[in-house]
Amino acid sequence: MAEFAQFSGTDRYIADEALMASVNAALVLERPLLVKGEPGTGKTLLAHAVAETLGRPLYSWHVKSTTKAEEGLYTYDVVQRLNDSRFGDADVSNIRNYIKYGPVGLAFDSDEPVVLLIDEVDKADIEFPNDLLRELDEMAFTVRELEETVRAKQRPLVIITSNAEKELPDAFLRRCVFHFIDFPDRERMERIVHVHLPTLGPDLMKAALDRFFAFRKVAGLRKPPSTSELVDWLTVLVASGLDPASITEGDPFLGVLFKGEADLAAAVDKRRGRKSW
């Protein structure tokens, strides 16, 4: 395995064995890596960590509900061209000037191998992943206006993240290496926190993690606090210079952990020992 084990986590990112196996499989098999997991478990961070370890530049494409698959490849700015033809002095006869590559196009066009992150692929329309199938399979697309095919000079490592808001099509899943980021257990969480806040004292760490894991058990939370919220919370706690004991008694700054009003109320109820509904 040694010659393939190119990814093994970074100083800033804690990777487990399963994750390393998935990333390396994606590298060797040249397939996209699909990363799923609860919000805030570090899906996007993973792409950054992989790019950092491999020493490759990262191209990010943040997908929104209105994103069309084609935008990732290229856009043809017809409006600019029309404007130039009437009022400007640019060379409008060359369509090439009005073709702009999207993140996928840029990644294909790059001379060195890159990491391409397609973030939150499930935000877009249900057909979106299917529209990208051929491009990601063949690592090529056609610019219709120029009748030219853009082929990846160096096959990029594609990392796709999903929050499971929409079901992804089977044909798409079949082509991906799948990785699910499990919620970290206490020991791993301590390591993660340590990476982010190296100076954190053991008392504060223990008190905060005790509360944190207790809060995650509160029934009926719409969004249980996750790693990123914990790190934010700890940062605030450190900055406030509170005594670790007061965390257990006072539950300060809960608004950092719980984003919804109902969740906050449920957490406060729990602290007072009432049953939360």
Binding site: M1, E3, F4, E17, A18, M20, A21, S22, N24, A25, A26, V28, L29, V177, F178, H179
Partner: peptide, 16 residues
């Protein structure tokens, strides 16, 4: 050679 032992096979299999 991505999986040389059962552990590796387990993680690789789950990923693929």
């Amino acid at each position: 050679g991505l999986a040389t032992d059962l552990d590796g096979m387990y993680h690789l299999g789950r990923a693929l």
